[in-house]
Structures are given as structure tokens and as C-alpha cells.
């Protein structure tokens, strides 16, 4: 099949889809409608469980099984990336060459790193109260750590993120979420049931199991993203591909494009 035939056939089929979707949209309730039965119930249920952030109440309490599945997807994807981006039989590792980093970059990175990590911890811890939560905070934490790569170099990054530890933490976070669900069963309720005291509305300890699940997710996401990024960085920096003398794209540490500097 030629590319033109393919595109033409696709456009015809896509036109049918577009027409059907447009027609379907005319049957939807008005944009901004006042009827949200599930949404209203979810708000009531969240307030009954003294969780101020309703989105977190849904994610970690009412529909926690979805989130368990979602975190398992993250866990599986990290594991999959570790397996797929492993050093193949015909590949070698090369130590990356450090490169010169602008002093301003170094200063900015060093200053931002602690702030970013602090923000990440805050976002995770306040998931039940304010926008944010385990996932958002976890990503902030993981990227914060990589300021070490931008500001210093790859070897510094390797020192601040022992992969074995973070790999184990990733699994521990995922396992802790699954195990927290068992607390409900042990207390005589259902799996993932919110059995802890609900606390005072709008306090850090409110929401029963929500802050705990939130923390487990935060640990899993932060370590998962660190391990995931490490696989990609490994490919770019350390692993030499078959038939090549050096890494595929030789970008040592620091900003790309800087001339290499002997260590």
C-alpha cells in the first residue's frame, strides 16, 4: 500500500468518525451543566470523611482501587523500563566524562535543590487538604533531585540517588499501598476501607487512611520516576551501543553543548 492510499483511506474513515463524534456531542448536556450526580455524592462523601480536598478523597478513599491500579501501572512501567533499557549482552558501560558547568547554573541548581525537595514534601503531605498529593509531590521530588545533574554532573547525581535504594523504595511504596488496603480487612471491613480515625476537618491528620496512602504513593512515585529517569540517562550517558566506540549520544554532565573538560 502506498503512503498516499493509506492517508486517503484514513481521511475518509476519520471523516466518518468526526461526523459521528460531532453528532454525538449534540446529545450531551449543556457545557457547564448543573447536573453532576456522582460529583455531588463524592463531595458529600468526602466531607463525611473529613477530607477537604475532594479530589484526593476520591483518589485515595472512594475510588482507591483505581489509584491502586494506576500505581501498579507506574510500578510495572518502571520495571518494564528497567528490563527494556538494561545493558544488553553486546554492550558495555563507559564512565561519563565530566563537563564544565557555568557557575551561575551551579549556584542556581544548588540553591533550588533544597527548596524543590521541600516543596515536594509539602505537596505530598498536604494532599488531603490542598491541591496536590502523592503523585504531584512525588514528581516534584524526583525532578528536584535531578537538579544535581544540571548543576553538577552525572557522577554527583549517581551519588545522591543510589539506584538500589530507590528501586527498593519504589517497590516498598507500591507494596505499602496494597498492604494498607489489607488494614480494612483486618479491622473487619472491606479491602481498602478507610478504618483509621478521621481526625479534625482541615487538619494535617484528617481523612483517616488518606494521608497514609498519599504518603505511600508519594514514596512510590518519587522513587519510581527517579529509577525511570535513571534508565534513560544511563542510555544517553553510560551505555555504549554495539558497534560504536562511545555512548550513542555523548552528553556527559551539565548543559549539553559545553565542551568536554578533562577531569
Amino acid at each position: 500500500m502506498t503512503r498516499n492510499t493509506r492517508t486517503t483511506v484514513f481521511l475518509v474513515a476519520a471523516a466518518v468518525l468526526a461526523a459521528a463524534f460531532t453528532w454525538a456531542c449534540t446529545g450531551l448536556p449543556r457545557f457547564g451543566t448543573d447536573t453532576h450526580p456522582y460529583g455531588d455524592r463524592a463531595v458529600r462523601a468526602a466531607l463525611a470523611h473529613r477530607t477537604a480536598n475532594v479530589v484526593s478523597a476520591i483518589n485515595f478513599d472512594q475510588r482507591a482501587l483505581d489509584t491502586l491500579g494506576e500505581e501498579s501501572i507506574l510500578f510495572a512501567a518502571v520495571l518494564g523500563a528497567v528490563v527494556l533499557l538494561r545493558r544488553a549482552r553486546d554492550e558495555d558501560r563507559a564512565d561519563p566524562e565530566p563537563r564544565r558547568v557555568l557557575p551561575s547554573t551551579r549556584l542556581l541548581g544548588a540553591a533550588l535543590l533544597p527548596v524543590t525537595v521541600l516543596v515536594g514534601v509539602y505537596v505530598v503531605a498536604h494532599g488531603q487538604l490542598s491541591p496536590g498529593g502523592g503523585f504531584q509531590g512525588g514528581v516534584v521530588l524526583a525532578t528536584g533531585l535531578h537538579l544535581a545533574y544540571v548543576a553538577a554532573d552525572y557522577r554527583v547525581l549517581r551519588r545522591v540517588r543510589p539506584l538500589a535504594v530507590f528501586g527498593a523504595l519504589d517497590a516498598t511504596g507500591a507494596g505499602a499501598f496494597t498492604a494498607l488496603g489489607l488494614a480494612g480487612l483486618i479491622a473487619g471491613g472491606s479491602y481498602l476501607e478507610n478504618v483509621l480515625p478521621l481526625g479534625t476537618f482541615n487538619q494535617l491528620t484528617s481523612g483517616g487512611t488518606v494521608p497514609l496512602v498519599n504518603a505511600a504513593v508519594g514514596v512510590e512515585v518519587a522513587s519510581g520516576v527517579i529509577v525511570l529517569l535513571a534508565q534513560f540517562l544511563d542510555q544517553a550517558v553510560e551505555i555504549t551501543s554495539p558497534g560504536h566506540a562511545g555512548p550513542v549520544q555523548n552528553t556527559g554532565g551539565g548543559a549539553p553543548g559545553n565542551p568536554p573538560e578533562a577531569s
Binding site: 453532576h36 456522582y38 460529583g39 463524592a42 463531595v43 468526602a46 475532594v54 479530589v55 478523597a57 476520591i58 483518589n59 475510588r63 483505581d66 489509584t67 494506576e70 500505581e71 501501572i73 507506574l74 510495572a76 512501567a77 518502571v78 518494564g80 523500563a81 527494556l84 533499557l85 503523585f135 525511570l228 534508565q231 534513560f232 542510555q235
Partner: peptide, 28 residues
């Protein structure tokens, strides 16, 4: 409606991780 926001959050995570996995296949 908070429910769709929770769904989108789940959806974002799913999308990001699937993209990461597919990109690791592309690298190889």
C-alpha cells in the same frame, strides 16, 4: 465535578508511564 478531575489524574499517570515505556522501546 471532582470525579472527572480524579479520573484525569489517573489518566495522566497512565499516559505518562505508557509513554515512558514506549520511548524506551524506541531507544532500543
Amino acid at each position: 465535578d471532582p470525579v472527572v478531575q480524579a479520573l484525569v489524574l489517573t489518566d495522566v499517570v497512565v499516559g505518562a508511564t505508557v509513554t515512558a515505556l514506549l520511548l524506551s522501546l524506541v531507544i532500543q
